[in-house]
Structure formats: C-alpha cells, structure tokens
C-alpha cells in the first residue's frame, strides 16, 4: 500500500484542481477525484478524503457518504488485484459458490477480504451481464467467463 506522504497529497491536490476545471461544479469533480485517490493511495484513504475536502470545499463527511455509496470505489485498503466474482442466479446455478469456497480454501480469500500477501481482494458482485457464459468474474479490468477451479488457478497465476 503506497504510504501517505505530503508529496503524494500534493500530486492528488494538483490532479483535483485539474479535474475541477472540467466540471461546472466542485461536487461534480468528486467522483473522478476518487479514482485519482485510488491510483495514488490504493484506496480512498482518510487523508485523501481530507485533501479532497480541502480543495473542493465539500465537507469530509459528505465525501465519505458519496464514496461509500458506490460499489466501485475502494474505501478500504485492497489487494493489488481485485476479483469481482458474480454470485447472482445464473452464476450461482453454474457453481459460483463452489468458486467462492475454493478461493477461501486455496488462497485464504473471503468475500470482502484480501489475501495475506496483499495480492488479491475478492468482491462479490450482483450480475455482471454474463449470464450466458456463467460463472463469470471481472479481474481488475478484464472479464473472464465459463470459470472452473482450474481456469481460476491459471488466471490468477498471471496476475502477480
């Protein structure tokens, strides 16, 4: 996890100023600035929230409210790679829960948790639109379908 340093906070500040130019209101710059914070700190850290609040003038509490509303933001420290595994009806029928169980046994990875080596985090998703090729997941920004335990192993192997 990247350390919080004044240097990094300064970079964040600069980026938010740039973003604010692009939107009609300060509030509108919040969502994209969350991605910047994640890029810099790995997640939307309390320090980042403080900095975003300082720059945009949006109260820190409100920023936390917004950041926590969306499932796509990382509001706590996460692993280097994020597995978003669907367990909705189709995937469930096709064995998504077996995969969840497998991840836990083999990698020590529980839903919402992170592997001890900080490599993977697991997020349970509600339908990612791949019902025809269930079970499916999104790993970072790539999607994978027709998953099996073996395929999962091979895939994870390629994400260091």
């Amino acid at each position: 996890m990247p350390q919080v340093t004044t240097e990094r906070l300064k970079i964040l500040r600069g980026k938010i100023y740039e973003l604010m130019e692009l939107y009609p209101s300060y509030q509108a710059a919040l969502l994209p600035s969350f991605f910047v914070a994640e890029e810099i700190f790995g997640f939307i850290s309390p320090e980042a929230i403080g900095e975003i609040s300082n720059v945009t003038g949006v109260p820190a509490a409100e920023i936390r409210g917004v950041a926590s509303f969306y499932a796509m933001y990382k509001t706590k420290p996460m692993g280097r790679h994020i597995i978003q595994l669907c367990t909705n009806v189709s995937c469930m029928i096709e064995g998504a829960y077996d995969l969840v169980e497998y991840l836990k046994e083999k990698y020590g990875l529980t839903p919402g948790g992170t592997t001890p080596d900080g490599r993977f985090s697991l997020v349970i998703m509600e339908c990612i639109g791949a019902c025809g090729t269930a079970p499916a997941m999104i790993l970072d920004t790539d999607s994978y379908e027709n998953l099996t335990k073996d395929r999962l192993d091979t895939l994870l192997e390629s994400y260091k």
Partner: peptide, 17 residues
C-alpha cells in the same frame, strides 16, 4: 458543522462519521 452524512447504500446505510 457538516460532520455526518448517510454512508453506504440500501439496507447497509448508516450515519457516520
């Protein structure tokens, strides 16, 4: 003071921080 707001979503919502 703007010290609190609703955080999270749906049935997980609560008032913080």
């Amino acid at each position: 003071a703007f010290a609190i707001s609703v955080i999270n979503r749906g049935s997980h919502s609560l008032i913080e921080p």
